[in-house]
Amino acid sequence: MSKKRILYVEDDETLAFLTSDNLEQHFEVIHANNGKEAFLLFCSEPFDLCVLDIMLPDMDGFEIATEIRKRNQEIPIIFLSAKTMKEDRIKGLKLGADDYLVKPYSIEELILKIEIFLNRSQKTSDNSNQKQYVFGSFHFEPENYLLKKETQKITLTEREASLLQLFLDNPNTVLKREKILMELWGSDDYFLGRSLDVFISRLRKIIKEETHVRIENIPRVGFKLVVE
């Protein structure tokens, strides 16, 4: 079986060498040391996952991710950064990234994250006949991250689409925060919990005019999608 192809972007030569050397034991790694080179590679070659440093010359990681998401809503993206501010982590996740690891990171954790997101991506691509959902006046196509209502079309991020699908697969059921975080991120740390609140808030704004559909807070437990 051919190895999965990883686009790895890092301008620190020593760190790039060490990380690439470890990743190459499991994946085919294509390394770029600046943003423009990385974006050109992404546009010209197929990849299964992107690992992006944020502080890069020419284009930073956020800019690369924005351009990637314009062209591909499905490919997993993992940010690596020395920036520890929660605003940066939330910004990265809102751009459609799947995870955000803070330097210095564990190479074992990075490999585990990559494997989790590659497996999830493979399951999604294998399921070509994914079911579609109708709730209230919305029609939801999870494989296209598309939410339609009459003539309105809303494109969700991959994370928002996964969250909505999780709710719709469990209507009128309390979902614990830990379960949601493990399903979507494979981790339930504090910063991902804050990011979850951001995605919940966005979904609420989208469905706020639906009188028979709402996302309820269950204090100290989690959330419930109520469909009446």
Rank of each mutant, 00 (worst) to 15 (best):
S2D: 11
K3C: 01
Y8E: 10
F17Y: 15
F17Q: 12
T19D: 07
T19F: 13
T19P: 06
T19E: 08
D21L: 08
E28G: 02
H31I: 13
G35V: 13
L40H: 10
L41C: 04
F42A: 06
S44F: 05
E45C: 06
D48Q: 07
C50E: 01
D60P: 08
D60N: 15
E63Q: 15
A65Q: 07
T66G: 02
E67A: 14
P76N: 08
I77V: 14
L80T: 08
A82Y: 02
A82P: 02
M85W: 00
K86Q: 13
E87T: 13
D98F: 09
K103T: 12
P104Q: 09
L112F: 06
I114V: 14
I114L: 14
I114T: 12
L118M: 11
S121V: 02
Q122D: 14
Q122I: 08
S125W: 05
S125Y: 07
D126G: 00
N127F: 15
S128P: 00
N129F: 12
Q130G: 15
Q132S: 09
V134H: 15
G136A: 05
F138R: 11
F138E: 00
F140Y: 15
N144W: 01
N144R: 14
L146G: 03
K148M: 14
K149V: 00
T151H: 08
K153R: 15
T155D: 02
A161I: 02
L163E: 03
N170Y: 03
K179N: 13
I180H: 07
M182V: 04
R194G: 08
S195E: 10
L196K: 09
R202Q: 08
L203C: 05
R220T: 04
G222R: 08
F223V: 06
F223A: 07
V227H: 04
